[in-house]
Nucleic acid binder design. Structure first.
Lengths: 345, 345
DNA sequence: CTGAAAGCGCTTACAG
DNA sequence: CTGAAAGCGCTTACAG
C-alpha cells in the first residue's frame, strides 16, 4: 500500500529564488534586486523578501548568479612555491579579504610555462577569473606593459612596476636597517648569505637586499669581503651549510646577515653545533620575521606578509569596482631586535 | 569613414560550446559528451570535437556546467585555527588532490556557532558543497551519528568515529614512542607539557597523548610527578614559560615531552637562555615534525600532516563517486631522533 | 518601484 | 552513436 502525502511535500533540497518570490508575493526580479541592495526597491518590499528568505533559509545559487551576470566573482592568483611559508601567509591574507567580499580565489603555480602563457595573454586562465594577482612573478616592465593592456585587472605583489598596481616592501631599505644595526653594534667583519640557485624567478629580491646592505656598509667605509659572501639557497639546510663554511674560514665573520629567516634558522643550528654562542661569538640577522623567529630569538627585518596579501586583495576588489588608480603601494619594514645579535666578542 | 570588416569578426570573448559545435559540425550535446569522456561517442567525432576545441581555445564555463548538472564540484572544509601550521599544511594536501580532480575547496572556520549549525544539519553550508571535510572538530559519536544520516558525504580528519569515514594518527602510540625513547636513554625524571586552555575543541589530542605517555612510563614503573606536569598552551610562548617553570624547580626534570613542536621551540629557547645545553642538561622531545624542527635539531614524533590531507580528499572524492565504505584510516607516526635528546647528565 | 521574459552556457533525458 | 529541446537558477534590459 502506498501512502499519498496528506499535503504537498515541502520542496526537496534547497529553496530557489522562485520559492522566495512566491513566499513573498513578488517576482523573482524583485527578489534578486532586494537581495543585492539594488536601489529602487521599496523598503516594505525588501522587508517581505528578507523575511521570506529567512523562513526558507534561502541562499542564492552562486553558479546560476555567475552565469547570469557574466561575472565569475573569482580572482586568480599566480605564485611560485605554493608551499613556502611566505606564499602561504600571503594567501591567507588574500583569501581573508576575498572571502569576505564573497569572491573565490583560484590558485595557480607559476612555473615558467604558466607564466609565459599569462604574459602572452592566454585566455584559459583569464577566462575563468575577473582579475589576476601576480605574486613574485618578476616579469619586468615590458611584459607588465602588455598586462596593463588587458581588460582583466592585474595586481602585482612583491615588485614595483610602473604601469601596474603593485604592493611590495622596499627590499633595499630592509637590508639597510640590518646593516645599520650591525654597524652600530660595532661589527666590521660582516658576512652576507643570499641565494640564487633556488630562485627561479624572484631574482630581484636577493639583488635589492644585497645592494642595500652593501650601500650602508660602504657609507661606513666597509665592504663585504668576497669570502664572506655565501649562497644559502634560501633554505634552512642551505643556511646551515653556508654558516659552516663561514665558521671554517681562518678569520670568521663576527656578524652575518641572512636574506631570509629560514636560512638564519639553519645558521643558528650550525653555530650551536660548533659550540659557539649566538649573539656573542657570532651575531645573526635574518629577514622576514617568520612565525618561529621570535622563539629562536632571531633579530630580523620584519615584513608584514599577511598585510601585503590583504592589501593586494583590496586593491583588486577596488579595481573590479572600477576604482583603480594604477600606482605602487610601498609597505614598511622594520628591524626587530632580539638576542641573536650583540657586540662583537 | 567607417570600415566594415571584410569578414565576420571573430567572436569577442571566450568561445562557447556552441562555437565548438559549429566548428566541429556537430550538436552541442555531442560536444558535451565528447569532452566528458562519455561512452558512445564515435572516435572520429571525438577527434573532430577535440581539434575544434584546440583551435578555438575552448574552456567550458564551469558555472554553466555546475548549474546544468546540479553538481557544485565543491568540497567544504571546516577547521579550527585556520592560520596554524597544522591546518595550513592539511589544507595544502586537501587542495592538491581536489584541484587535480577539478574540484573547488570552500573553507570555513569552525567556531563554536558554525559547528553547532553543521551538526544540526544546517542547509546553508551543505547546499553549496557536494561534501564536507571536518578537521579536528571532535563532535563525539552522537553528533557523528547525525552527520552520517545526511545525504552529504562527510570525512573526518584528526579523530576516529565509528559511523564516519575518518583519517587520523594514533596519538597514544606517538606519545608511547616518545616515552620509550626517553626511557631507553635512561631518563627517570621526566616531565610532560601539554595544554588545554587554548584548545577550544581538540581536547582529545592532549588527552590521548598524555595517556599514552603515562602508560609507557607506568609499564617501566615510573610516573610523571605532579610538579612535572605543565600547561604550555600549545603555543611557542607557552612552551617557553612552561620550560622556565620546570627549570626553576628544586629538582628539575632531565627530560621533557612537549605535546607539540611549537611548544618545544619555546622550550629550546628557555633552556638556552638559562645557559643550559639541550640534549645534555635537558632532553626535549616534541610532537609533529614541524618544518622548522629539523633545523632546530628537535627530536620529535613525526605525523605526515600533508598526507593526511591528501588521503582525506581522496576519500571524499571516492565517497562522491559512490564508492565509500565507511571506515577509519589510521596513519603511521614515527620517532625522529635528533640532537635535542641524549642520556641524562 | 515592479514584473514578464529573454538569456547566460552548459547537461541530460528522450527520441531516433 | 547523435540531435532537438527542455531546463538548471539566476540577472537584467525593457516596458510599464
Amino acid at each position: 500500500m502506498i501512502h499519498e502525502p496528506a499535503i504537498a511535500a515541502p520542496p526537496v533540497g534547497r529553496a530557489t529564488i522562485e520559492d522566495v518570490a512566491r513566499e513573498a508575493g513578488v517576482s523573482t526580479a524583485t527578489v534578486s534586486r532586494a537581495l543585492r541592495h539594488h536601489p529602487y526597491v521599496a523598503e516594505s518590499t525588501r522587508q517581505r523578501v528578507l523575511s521570506a528568505v529567512e523562513r526558507l533559509q534561502y541562499v542564492a545559487n552562486a553558479n546560476a548568479a555567475r552565469l547570469a551576470s557574466g561575472q565569475s566573482r573569482t580572482v586568480g592568483m599566480v605564485a611560485p612555491m605554493l608551499t613556502s611559508w611566505y606564499t602561504s601567509e600571503l594567501t591567507v591574507g588574500v583569501e581573508e579579504v576575498l572571502t569576505q567580499a564573497r569572491f573565490d580565489l583560484l590558485i595557480g603555480t607559476a612555473n615558467s610555462a604558466a607564466r609565459e602563457r599569462i604574459f602572452r595573454g592566454d585566455a584559459r586562465f583569464q577566462q575563468r577569473v575577473d582579475g589576476v594577482i601576480l605574486v613574485d612573478v618578476f616579469c619586468g616592465e615590458e611584459a607588465a606593459g602588455r598586462l596593463a593592456e588587458m581588460d582583466t585587472p592585474v595586481v602585482v605583489l612583491g615588485e614595483q612596476l610602473s604601469r601596474l598596481t603593485s604592493v611590495s616592501i622596499d627590499n633595499s631599505r630592509g637590508a639597510r636597517l640590518a646593516a645599520k644595526h650591525l654597524l652600530e653594534l660595532g661589527h666590521t667583519r660582516i658576512a652576507l648569505v643570499g641565494g640564487h640557485t633556488n630562485l627561479d624567478v624572484a631574482k630581484n629580491v636577493p639583488t635589492e637586499r644585497t645592494a642595500g646592505f652593501r650601500d650602508t656598509l660602504a657609507a661606513a667605509g666597509l665592504r663585504v669581503q668576497p669570502q664572506y659572501l655565501q649562497d644559502g639557497d634560501f633554505t634552512i639546510a642551505g643556511g646551515r651549510d653556508a654558516m659552516q663554511r663561514l665558521l671554517q674560514l681562518p678569520k670568521p665573520p663576527t656578524a652575518v646577515f641572512f636574506l631570509s629567516d629560514e636560512m638564519a634558522f639553519g645558521a643558528l643550528q650550525a653555530v650551536r653545533e660548533a659550540g659557539l654562542r649566538v649573539g656573542h661569538d657570532v651575531s645573526i640577522v635574518g629577514f622576514d620575521d617568520h612565525p618561529v623567529a621570535e622563539a629562536m630569538g632571531l633579530t630580523t627585518v620584519r615584513q608584514p606578509v599577511r598585510d601585503i596579501g590583504r592589501l593586494g586583495a583590496r586593491l583588486m576588489l577596488d579595481a573590479l569596482d572600477g576604482y583603480a588608480p594604477t600606482r605602487h603601494h610601498p609597505i614598511e619594514v622594520s628591524l626587530i631586535e632580539r638576542i641573536s645579535t650583540g657586540r662583537p666578542a
